[in-house]
Amino acid sequence: MTSFSDHPVRVAAARPPARPLNVMKYRNTAMEASLSINRQFSIAVHSRAIDSCNDIEELRKVAKTLLSAWQHQAEFSEHYGAQLLGMRR
């Protein structure tokens, strides 16, 4: 399974951002509050990359990758959740 982090989003990781990265700016839901600081940072970095992208085809590709990853994660959670509860799926 390919994760979103495997998707080639162009982010200049070698140099520090011109302005301080405000992780809280990209926090959209209460669910994200329970994420580790590393995952919150990843969301902020990828959100910034998406915000700076003007190529509609690349944005479509990223959106489809995220949709697929979301559905794979949901399937994974269902399967292993049912397994842990001793339910057949």
Rank of each mutant, 00 (worst) to 15 (best):
V45A: 00
S34L: 08
P17E: 01
L21A: 05
R48F: 14
M31V: 11
A49G: 07
A33P: 06
N28E: 10
Q40F: 03
R39C: 07
R19K: 15
Y26I: 09
N38E: 15
F41L: 08
S42C: 07
A18V: 15
Q40K: 01
L35V: 10
S34K: 01
Q40I: 02
Y26S: 10
T29E: 01
L21M: 08
R48Y: 14
R48A: 14
A44Y: 03
S47M: 13
A49S: 05
P17Q: 10
A44Q: 04
A18I: 15
P17C: 02
N38Y: 15
I37F: 12
P17S: 03
A33T: 03
H46T: 03
E32C: 00
N28R: 12
M24D: 11
R19W: 05
P16C: 06
A49T: 06
R39N: 11
A33H: 08
A44K: 00
F41A: 10
V23E: 06
A33R: 11
R27L: 01
I37A: 11
R19Y: 01
Q40S: 04
T29R: 13
R39T: 10
R39K: 12
R19D: 00
H46I: 01
I43L: 11
K25T: 00
V45E: 15
V23T: 07
K25Q: 05
P20Q: 12
P20I: 06
R48I: 10
N38K: 08
E32V: 01
A49V: 04
P17Y: 11
K25H: 05
V45R: 03
R27Y: 05
P20A: 12
R15S: 09
V23Y: 07
N38V: 11
N38G: 10
L35D: 02
K25D: 00
R15I: 13
P16D: 02
R27C: 07
M31Y: 07
N28T: 03
I37T: 02
R48P: 05
S36A: 05
V45K: 05
V45C: 04
H46R: 15
V23M: 12
V45F: 04
N38I: 09
V23N: 08
Y26F: 09
A44C: 09
S47L: 05
N22Q: 13
T29L: 06
N28G: 01
N38A: 10
R48V: 11
I43P: 02
R27V: 09
R19N: 13
P17D: 04
F41D: 07
S47W: 09
R19S: 13
R39E: 15
P17W: 11
A49K: 15
A18M: 15
R15D: 08
K25P: 01
N38L: 12
A30H: 06
N22Y: 12
Y26Q: 02
I43A: 12
F41P: 01
R27M: 13
R27F: 04
